[in-house]
Design a protein around this nucleic acid. Sequence first.
RNA 1: GGACCGGUAGCUCAGUUGGAUAGAGCAGCUGCCUUCUAAGCAGCAGGUCAUUGGUUCGAAUCCAAUCCGGUUCACCA
Length: 592
Amino acid sequence: MELVPGIKLAVQAVLAEKYNHRIDSQDVLVNETKPEFKGDYTVVLFSYSKILKISPDALGQGIGEFLLNSNPDWFSEFNVIKGFLNLVMADNILIDFLHTQYNNASYGSQSVNGKRVMVEYSSPNTNKPLHLGHLRNNFLGWSVAAIYKTLGYDMIKTCIANDRGIHICKSMVAWKLFANGATPESTGLKGDHFVGDYYVLFGIELKKQVETLMTSGLAREKAEKEAPLMIAAQKMLVDWEAGVPEVIELWKKMNDWVYAGFDITYKRIGSDFDKIYYESQTYLLGKDLVEIGLAKKVFFKKEDGSVWIDLKPDGLDEKIVQRSDGTAVYMTQDIGLAERKYEEYHTDLSLYVVADEQNYHFKVLKLICQKLQLPSAAGLYHLSYGLVELPSGRMKTREGTVVDADDIIDEMTSIAAKHTEELGKVDDFTEKERKELYDTIGLGALKFFLLRVDPKKRMVFNPDESIDFHGFTGPFVQYAHARIKSILRKESMGEYSGSEITSLLPLEKELLISLEKYSSLLQQACTEMNPSLVANYVFSIAKIFNSFYSEHSIGRAESEYKKQLRLRICVMTARVIQSAMSLLGIKVPERM
RNA sequence: GGACCGGUAGCUCAGUUGGAUAGAGCAGCUGCCUUCUAAGCAGCAGGUCAUUGGUUCGAAUCCAAUCCGGUUCACCA
């Protein structure tokens, strides 16, 4: 039995038995006791005091005495201050907890529950390289999937490659006109960067053409439409849809370059997918649903032949689902893809990790699926996250302020290398071991930085200040782990049955109380789809451990049994750190 | 203009089903490496929780209004 639920049940029982007051144990308010008061957990009594018409003080005394008498193995003391009942947990229950769980490799995880969840994340455009925003998306999606998986869900990680459309044609046109047959191989560039350069070039050249046209008297809007480059891109899109062989061939060639580049980055950051959907293969999905929607009178047709849904009764506007020329729009594709996913995987839940700019889109998507009574509707959930911004605001391709993913990863690993070399603690490492360690630390810092913030909130990244390696960071947590491993290499586990030690020092107890919370913390992180809770938790574990470590000697503990107890605390702390960090996609080193 | 999101220390963020004197990290300042890794520990300093009013035993948290910032409302994706 976990501590907090146990306390809630105990309080529920007291209220029923002693005060004849029945409540749901879930409603008992149990907090961690503030450091300035004596105790571990605090029950807030104001609401019961009011209902039962007993003063908070008397009620606290009554409940406290009852709890101590009925659960002497759980509670050792209590005190009441105003309406707060502070409970001191018995050292023995924590010592027992340690003894039974310290070596449990699956501590915190749950057995398979038969539910299936799909999470779509990353979903890049195949015309430019990944940037910092994509990294937040990738880390988030991957981590949420890992958290679900450890709690027993069958996870399917997926990604939709936005591999077609006008934006793709732009880089194709630019390459055709300006590249003179250059390739990633001939230039030595990574494929996604190579193609991205042509996408940027298209923008530059287009701007020139537009300006020329405007000096000859055209309005900007018209000039943008009539610039030869734009006309060429539009034509290429039409040719692509018509399947013109040379266009298809070029499209395939350039996309393959991009995928080769993405593969390198994905491999480096540890992103992986069980299934990849390609927009080029799914963009026509949903067209048949337009007919079904019309038949069900969920959609209606306007005079020009365009098809719409009226969402005004739901507080929204009318939304188009098919153009007057009969072509599909983004929304319709997404409805089709939602159905396709459901047919293929029969998911209980289908998550979309997509930036909060698209909140409205997903609200509408879910509504339409519901109105069409599609089976995919119920589990459809938009896991919305905030953009990564610069101190000056959004990153803009045009202003060259986009923080490139490969660049930032390189920067992080080289800072890790510099720090490590300065400290000189791993001078005996081989070249390969060092490189691995720099990756572990650099990526650890980057992932932790992006995951420690509540996903729903936008966050600021300042390129002028490199991401920290001290304090509330990945390397801080990794360091605590490396320290523990260092101890465990030097000291050996010995005789200890779990009953030789009967009392704990404050830091030992604090650490055990925190370790005990891991399971419920994971449940919460899963329910809220929020890896930042895991990041905050594992940081606090590392912090308490570091205090414990500097306050108490483990190898030279006061007694052999105390040493054995502390070694077990070390083992368990290392396990929890390793486990929690792995859910964030972060490795922990044996030495650093 | 409508809808939605946000405003907490110099900076980056926790804390918001209402609970005790609002917490971390960074930056700044003091101490601590002849004993298990100082990427660390201990401490100091730093706040009108955007503003105003309301609800109540109690409000950063709930309600209303206002100010500021962002996103969105395309026959774009």
